[in-house]
């Protein structure tokens, strides 16, 4: 499995959808042809041909939806958030987007959680926090804002807020809301075990910022990344905003 396999896979969706588009052109041509010879058919036969073409066209559109759905699955991480690679590409498209905010969070002492409750329970906690992070982002979304959340790596998650028009105090309040929501959310127990109550909740540390005018997106990411690192060093379970 080298790059050549990956490239083929990248192109596969485009090839399939393009073939479906070409099929549309053929259906139109057939429809035009049979309409031109309408008088040669009985009304029943003509309707039958049209019904068949409608069926083929409908199948073509169904296949378009299914192929798109299938390929979307390939860009989602096991936590249900987008993969890092996919996120990076999306972030790259935001280079010239002015109203942009970036948020990053990290599960506190996740290594200890894995050690204490095992990796199966750890995976459940990871998925649970990821979904709650995304839900909290969606619930606090401003109108017309687009949220794109991903797993940054390990137990770190991130999100870009496109068309974010709020000020710093607003995003800080929102991040605090996300942090407390994740903290309050109960992590389910994956297998029956005699655990203490500690498995049920996990805290996060969260940092974020708003893109400065003409700032490269990578600079925004770095500022937030540094702020998160500092916050983790000094005080976990924290909300940190960087200017």
């Amino acid at each position: 499995m080298g790059n050549s396999h990956s490239t083929t896979f990248d192109e596969l969706q485009e090839i399939i959808i393009d073939l479906l588009a070409q099929e549309g052109s053929s259906i139109r041509e057939i429809a035009d042809k049979i309409t031109g010879y309408k008088d040669k058919f009985s009304p029943e036969h003509f309707d039958f041909l049209k019904a068949e073409l409608r069926y083929i066209n409908e199948s073509r559109k169904n296949m378009d939806s299914r192929v798109r759905e299938l390929f979307k699955k390939a860009i989602v991480d096991r936590t249900g958030l987008y993969t890092r690679l996919y996120f990076d590409e999306r972030l790259g498209l935001c280079e010239h987007t002015q109203n942009l905010a970036y948020i990053m969070c990290d599960i506190d002492k996740f290594h200890d959680y894995n050690e204490e409750y095992g990796h199966l329970q750890g995976d459940t906690a990871l998925n649970s926090v990821a979904m709650n992070f995304k839900d909290a982002l969606d619930k606090t979304k401003m109108s017309d804002e687009k949220v794109f959340a991903a797993r940054y790596g390990g137990e770190e998650f991130c999100a870009i807020l496109i068309d974010y028009t709020g000020k710093e105090d607003l995003i800080k309040a929102r991040m605090e809301q996300i942090r407390t929501s994740v903290e309050a959310h109960e992590i389910p127990l994956v297998v029956p075990a005699q655990f203490d109550q500690g498995y049920k909740h996990r805290t996060i540390t969260i940092a974020g910022s708003i893109k400065i005018l003409n700032e490269p997106v990578l600079s925004l990411v770095k500022r937030v990344d540094d702020a998160l690192k500092d916050a983790k060093k000094t005080n976990r379970r924290n909300t940190s905003i960087v200017s």
Binding site: F9, D10, Q13, E14, F71, A74, R90, L93, T97, D163
Partner: peptide, 27 residues
């Protein structure tokens, strides 16, 4: 069984979708 390729990069179709979703609003 379809095994998703986690290293998949977005296709140009995906990018077009993003650009349109980003540009679109109810207003």
């Amino acid at each position: 069984t379809f095994i998703p390729d986690q290293d998949r990069k977005p296709s140009s179709l995906d990018k077009l979708d993003w650009l349109l979703e980003e540009a679109y609003s109810s207003e």
